[in-house]
Design a protein around this nucleic acid. Structure first.
Lengths: 146, 146
DNA sequence: CATGGATGCTTGAAGTACTCAAGCAACTTG
DNA sequence: CAAGTTGCTTGAGTACTTCAAGCATCCATG
């Protein structure tokens, strides 16, 4: 390992590789979600619900218009995977929470991302640590999109 | 760097980080595409056109139904960014090629992914090489989706 | 070479995702 | 309390997506 300095990849190559990996993981996620009757967008929303989140918060997390969230939550609610609860402190706000079934479903979706899990198994602990460190350094600049 | 063996991240953490990065890059791509009047899907299709590609090939590359490609190419063709050419060897096939304007457009979109470029600039050559190597090892398992 | 079965593309129907403009309710501030 | 702000929904319009059908062309077998 730590090979004898191979040709450093160009930024373009690295970019393409990251994109390819991201796409592959997304496909894996979408396929797993599909097996549970969810679209990838619905699953992604469900994945954000560690606790109660107001509609507006979801729009921010998903980087989309609030009116879009209404529809997605409508469909998830129709399936009994989430619930809208009134916010005790502000009557305008509706907090979305995952139901027990919702939590189980998203948990299974994550567990069933076989391609992704298998891929990660190809690395040992040290490599994972290194990778994590490098990726973390990549993150900051990616966050701040106006 | 190469810190004194910090806690190795769990697979879940690593997974989440990769997902976050993928999402950030996709947002960046979508925003850049939007500035040129393209949806992210249209831009993604355009990005596949290094040479002539039959409709069916595009469906395979984008992992979607062939009938879906018809619509996307229709809209790109209406904007003059791609062209459908008959295949000399098989009259059923239509090969899609990017026009000069199409090539320029996708080139600019890539160049304008500022957040992504800035993020990659945070790494030096050695780190990029290491990262590339690790990500490449991740790829194989991600490819084989039925 | 005729015919039956693939294969490549398009169309139409139906549902999801997405944005923008408007509207209503509720909060906040002067 | 009035005016402005914020949170959510609705409605219109477009894009994306799949599936089922249909047409043209290719290919293999007899």
């Amino acid at each position: 390992m730590t090979a004898p300095t191979p040709q450093p990849p160009t930024k373009a190559q690295l970019l393409e590789l990251v994109a390819a990996l991201g796409t592959a993981q997304w496909q894996d996620f979408a396929a797993a979600a599909g097996r549970h009757g969810l679209t990838s967008v619905q699953a992604k929303l469900l994945a954000q619900l560690k606790g109660p989140v107001p509609m507006r918060g979801l729009a921010t997390l998903l980087v989309c218009d609030a009116s879009n969230v209404t529809g997605i939550v409508d469909r998830l609610e129709a399936r009994g995977l989430v619930r809208r609860e009134p916010d005790p402190a502000d009557r305008r706000v509706k907090n979305v929470v995952a139901t027990e079934e919702g939590r189980e479903t998203i948990h299974r979706v994550r567990a069933e991302m076989q391609a992704t899990h298998t891929a990660l198994d190809a690395l040992d602990e040290d490599e994972r640590t290194t990778l994590y460190g490098l990726l973390e350094r990549l993150r900051p600049g990616m966050e701040h999109r106006a």
